[in-house]
Design a protein around this nucleic acid. Structure first.
Length: 588
RNA sequence: GCGCUCUUAGCUCAGUGGAUAGAGCAUCGGUUUUCUAAACCGAGGGUCGCAGGUUCGAGUCCUGCAGAGCGCGCCA
């Protein structure tokens, strides 16, 4: 396993070059030719259209600023050093200071061989070193079906989890169920009213109660099971029963909804368990020991013109001394823990379960809570970045060129299932991660199901299908690469366009690493769209120029050359589709 | 009033402090007896919201301003 990952790491020309630059810098610094500098400023560009070589770097520009020994000839030393690297064909430094490098074709072929050998392992690395990461996402209140408000975070969390697995982390997908507190009280009451209704009583729902019809279905289940047992059962037991019953079924609904998108959780954690455990006292003690808790009165929030505000003394968390701009309520004035206190205790629970890192996926409406929660975790874990919070902005739904407005209060929110029924899993998953999560996004229900190149999912899946059709057709003609071993020979047959596609494919492991480290799945969708475009373009060249067609029955080795990179492309696509969680088909 | 996020082509969006800012859609003009035309090729289209600053170099970093979104007592 470790050996494999080292092989992956060392085999990639981009990583090899990074390693070389760092070693070069180390040596120069040791000999006092260069001052020390931040290695993160070194970039290797493998995709720029304006580049001169196969890949390029700013290393010379960065290093030349740090020369401390004026006798030192950076340019010559660097060039001769790079030239000595086994995989380098050509290397020069342009007038404006960029290093442009061409890779030996033999080396590219070796990497393609390696790719074909690795199959679905290609691009996976052990960067994470088996670190335990907890990714908490969705965590929607169990008061109704999953709505569109949660679908972006749901897919984002799932795909980030996959990315982390691909880079050698041990990932737990977790859902925090808020099954305590007043919203659940209201849920229980709403359900009881539906139950009464089923027994012929006329009921009216208050404006804050849940009107959804799903509660009628759940009430029917209670009626079927218990009959009229609860009608005159006026007690706390009854309230608890209705609350727990509602939550149990709603969590099942939620799991089913998320399964539509093929999202599964490893663990559900319940707020009620946190409340009933001693963990919140543990947290109290940790914070109290550090003098971060005190009784005080919060100021009236500015901009709040409500008249029922009144100063109240309560237990406060001194988050302003850590990362927040003000202190936050830890207990309500009636002595109960606040939601925040419970949630913070839940995070302590995760910490106690010995995760190396916690990642939360939060919606835009929770960004105000980031500083206080990070303050808690900084105190607990003594690390700034132990808790990482990825936020995603809202998704507006567009249909027939109109924005679909919804409001939870009026009960006309759109559910995940409704959207799923209209567009299906693949477009939904793909588009939810194809833009930066911090940017608000428009999701056009008409456009995402179109079957043309305006629809990136289709465009990429179509590229995969076309590549498959060539491979299958070749196989029908008796040409395949199953026992191909004449790799030295194919160098002659590769065209410039093909080498460009191969270079892109070989940069895939690096893309995965970047996407994983930045928690940015859209880097993958950008990448696959780019490769798809190159592929479609190449395909059409075969129409104008017959020598560029994939299959040439009179030239088996040339055909096999193409099959080799086509198969490589298919493997890379499969890996990406698997991470994003969408299907691929050999015919469409 | 305060905080966070965002502002790049007509539209939807990419863009590691580096080279002449890129895709797709839309518009206009081309390409199908062919391995999937559900595709490809070409053209036009830009004050990177505005103004300063840091830097050899800024769409990218900093400050201010404007606009949009989200949030701002014990709710969850």
């Amino acid at each position: 396993m470790l050996q494999d990952s080292i092989r992956t790491y060392m085999n990639n020309h981009i990583d090899l070059l990074f390693t070389y630059f760092n070693e070069f810098a180390d040596t120069c610094i040791k000999n006092n030719y260069l001052d020390n500098f931040n290695r993160k400023s070194i970039s290797i560009d493998f995709s720029s259209k304006s580049r001169q070589g196969d890949i390029s770097s700013n290393f010379y520009l960065v290093a030349i600023k740090k020369i401390s020994d004026k006798q030192f000839n950076l340019k010559d030393e660097l060039l001769s050093g790079i030239h000595n690297l086994a995989f380098i064909d050509k290397c020069e430094i342009s007038k404006n200071g960029f290093i442009n490098i061409n890779i030996k074709k033999k080396f590219l072929i070796e990497q393609i061989q390696y790719l074909l050998n690795e199959q679905t392992q290609f691009g996976k690395s052990n960067e994470g070193n088996g670190k335990k990461v907890n990714v908490e996402f969705v965590s929607a209140n169990p008061t109704g079906p999953v709505t569109v408000a949660h679908m972006r975070g749901a897919v984002l969390g799932d795909v980030i989890s996959s990315l982390l697995s691909n880079t050698g982390h041990q990932v737990t997908r977790e859902y925090y169920v808020n099954n305590a507190g007043s919203q659940i009280d209201i849920l229980g009451k709403s359900l009881f009213k539906r139950y009464l209704e089923l027994h012929g009583e006329k009921v009216e729902l208050n404006s804050n109660e849940y009107p959804g019809e799903y509660l009628i279905d759940i009430a029917k289940l209670i009626k079927k099971k218990d009959g009229d047992k609860w009608l005159n059962y006026d007690s706390i037991d009854r309230e608890e029963y209705f609350k727990d019953f509602a939550v149990k079924y709603l969590i099942e609904f939620i799991e089913k909804d998320l399964m539509l998108l093929n999202i599964k959780f490893d663990k559900f954690s319940f707020e009620k368990d946190i409340v009933n455990s001693s963990i919140i006292n543990d947290l109290f003690n940790i914070l109290d020991k550090k003098n971060l808790l005190y009784n005080g009165i919060l100021e009236k929030p500015k901009g709040d013109d409500s008249e029922d505000w009144e100063p109240r003394e309560q237990l406060l968390f001194k988050s302003s001394s850590i990362l927040d701009d003000q202190d936050r309520a830890f207990k309500k004035s009636n002595g109960e823990w606040t939601y925040f206190a419970n949630d913070a205790a839940y995070h302590l629970d995760k910490y106690n379960r010995e995760f190396n890192k916690l990642i939360n996926i939060w919606g835009a409406d929770h960004v105000g809570y980031i500083p206080r929660m990070k303050s808690v975790l900084k105190t607990i874990a003594n690390k700034d970045d132990y808790l990482e919070i990825v936020t995603c902005q809202i998704v507006r739904l567009i249909k027939n060129n109109k924005i679909l407005k919804m409001s939870k209060r009026e009960g006309n929110f759109i559910t995940l299932q409704e959207v799923y029924n209209q567009v299906g899993k693949d477009p939904l998953r793909y588009f939810m991660v194809s833009t930066k999560s911090e940017t608000s996004m428009d999701f056009d229900l008409n456009k995402v199901i179109e079957k043309n190149k305006d629809n990136s999912v289709f465009y990429c899946q179509y590229a995969y299908a076309r590549a498959s059709s060539v491979i299958n057709k070749a196989e029908d003609l008796g040409i395949d690469i199953k026992s191909f071993n004449n790799f030295d020979e194919i160098i002659k047959y590769l065209t410039k366009d093909e080498i460009e596609i191969i270079l892109k494919l070989l940069s895939y492991p690096y893309i995965v690493k970047l996407a994983s480290n930045a928690r940015e799945p859209h880097r993958l969708t950008n990448f696959i769209e780019d490769v798809s475009a190159s592929f479609h373009s190449f395909w059409n060249k075969g129409k104008e120029n017959e020598s560029l067609r994939f299959i040439d029955e009179n030239n088996i080795i040339k055909t096999q050359t193409k099959l080799i990179w086509l198969q490589s492309m298919r493997l890379v696509f499969e890996n990406i589709f698997n991470i994003i969680g969408i299907d691929y088909h050999e015919t469409m």
